[in-house]
């Protein structure tokens, strides 16, 4: 049985930048354990010689000519932003106090 503790869920949520409440942690941790348990069989299915598939198509890079084409105006690009100033996205401080 794959187990995932509330502390592990807290750490993962931290990595994913989600501020979970204690109540959410208690609710989600057992559910995630059940989900992980249901997918755990996967680790024994394929042998080492099976190559992984990341995508259904054999992909290659696609290039276009380096020419200017019509695109969004700055106003359009910023139209959905919670805050904007001087044609820029305005964001809260990104450095800590000590930096």
């Amino acid at each position: 049985m794959a187990q995932i503790s509330a502390d592990e869920v807290r750490h993962l949520a931290d990595l994913a930048r989600i501020d979970l409440s204690d109540a959410e942690l208690e609710h989600l941790a057992p559910q995630l354990s059940v989900i992980l348990d249901s997918v755990a069989s996967i680790s024994e299915v394929a042998s080492d010689d099976v190559p992984p598939t990341s995508h259904p198509l054999p992909l290659t890079n696609v290039f276009r000519e380096d020419v200017v084409t019509p695109s969004l105006t700055p106003e359009e690009a910023l139209s959905g932003a919670p805050d904007a100033q001087e044609q820029r996205f305005a964001v809260p401080r990104i450095l800590g106090d000590e930096q």
Binding site: A13, L15, I18, D19, L28, Q31, L36
Partner: peptide, 20 residues
């Protein structure tokens, strides 16, 4: 704070599972 308030349970479950 925004991602906690803005995402529902199933989305949180899958983001955490994917991160794991």
């Amino acid at each position: 704070a925004t991602r906690d308030a803005g995402f529902g349970d199933e989305v949180k479950r899958r983001i955490i599972l994917g991160t794991y």
